[in-house]
Nucleic acid binder design. Structure first.
Length: 324
DNA sequence: GAATGAATAT
DNA sequence: CATATTCATT
């Protein structure tokens, strides 16, 4: 009964670590380790993040979601209202922890997969941000994060419901745009993420139906041992812009502009995205055992985050969750 | 008061 | 456009 993690992915993870020179050229490092530690767990008041899935601590890849602390100087960032001036005083060490804003969360296919899984097993009715968040067991994930994504996800479902009679799981064409509705590039783009995974159609048309009892099933927690951390922020900023422009669907289905990350395909020979260096990654405190019941039946294996097949290109597999 | 969902802001 | 943040209800 010891599900120790395999040194495999772990080793790889280390290997993939970027060289010091490759590291954070424009963010982070501006904050003193001392400060970083102090922030590392800016858990919101309403979000105690019970995090029912933290066991084996060690130097887990748990990326501490410490604010990049743009500090006095802010690079071409979109979110850096430099207002933390004070602090930075090595000694004072007050509690500026509050009012710190985290970087934008990047919903990677993997994360989204967990999201969908959780929703799928909770049932649309019970799928509320809080529950989803708990089920996902993603460290660093906040209820607000989930709520925001959930909102978008619902819109996606609704849209598909209305326009797609049987788009089938993949919504590859994403309803094209025949209804004369406001269907446009936007859909194509959003579809990328949502269509990435097999969307349980059951969500739609699910009216007031008495859903059978589906007790908490810490999906993620029961998964293998992957401890996903939402800390995948701190670096994405660059990618963010990269992804921004490529859009333009040329192919209806196949690529849909798909994930043509120029930077992945050619620009950068090596993954310039693993700079999740962990100066003090061990900031997380292993909370008590999760409410995990005994139902471990879930553990479904949808497609890998990167919508495989479909001539699809690989997408940014961020964290070393190995392979789901 | 906390949480959700929608609207709005960045 | 993707998230974050805010607002109105419950």
């Amino acid at each position: 009964m010891r599900e120790e993690e395999e040194p495999n992915w772990f080793a790889r993870w280390e290997e993939q670590l970027p060289s010091p020179e490759e590291l954070t050229p424009l963010s982070q490092t501006l904050i003193t380790p001392d400060l970083a530690l102090a922030f590392d767990i800016p858990i919101a008041p309403s979000n105690s993040n019970p995090n029912p899935s933290l066991h084996h601590l060690h130097s887990a890849p748990t990326l501490p979601p410490p604010p990049s602390a743009p500090s006095s100087q802010t690079p071409p960032d979109f979110d850096s209202p430099d207002h933390l001036s004070a602090a930075a005083s090595g000694g004072g060490g007050d509690e500026p922890a509050r009012t710190l804003k985290r970087p934008r969360l990047v919903w990677t296919p993997q994360l989204h997969k967990r999201f969908v899984d959780a929703v799928a097993h909770l049932g649309i009715k019970n799928a509320v941000p809080k529950t989803i968040m708990q089920l996902m067991s993603v460290d660093g994930l906040t209820r607000e994060n989930v709520a925001s994504h959930l909102q978008k996800y619902r819109l996606y479902l609704k849209r598909m419901q209305g326009l797609s009679s049987s788009a089938g799981g993949a919504a590859g064409g994403a309803a094209g745009a025949g209804a004369g509705g406001p269907i446009s590039a936007a859909d194509a783009a959003t579809d990328q993420l949502f269509a990435s995974g097999p969307v349980p159609h059951h969500f739609l048309g699910r009216g007031p139906g008495p859903e059978p009892f589906m007790p908490f099933v810490p999906v993620a927690a029961l998964q293998h041992h992957q401890q996903i951390t939402a800390a995948v922020q701190q670096q994405h900023q660059q990618q963010y812009y990269q992804q921004r422009h490529m859009g333009h669907f040329g192919s209806p289905t196949g690529s849909t502009g798909g994930y043509d990350h120029g930077f992945l395909g050619r620009t950068v020979p090596q993954p310039g995205m693993h700079r999740m260096v962990g100066p003090a990654a061990v900031g997380l405190v292993p909370p008590p055992p999760p409410p995990a019941p005994s139902a471990a039946s879930y553990v479904e294996d949808l497609e890998s985050g990167s919508r495989g097949g479909r001539g699809g290109r690989r997408v940014l597999t961020l964290f070393p969750t190995g392979e789901d």
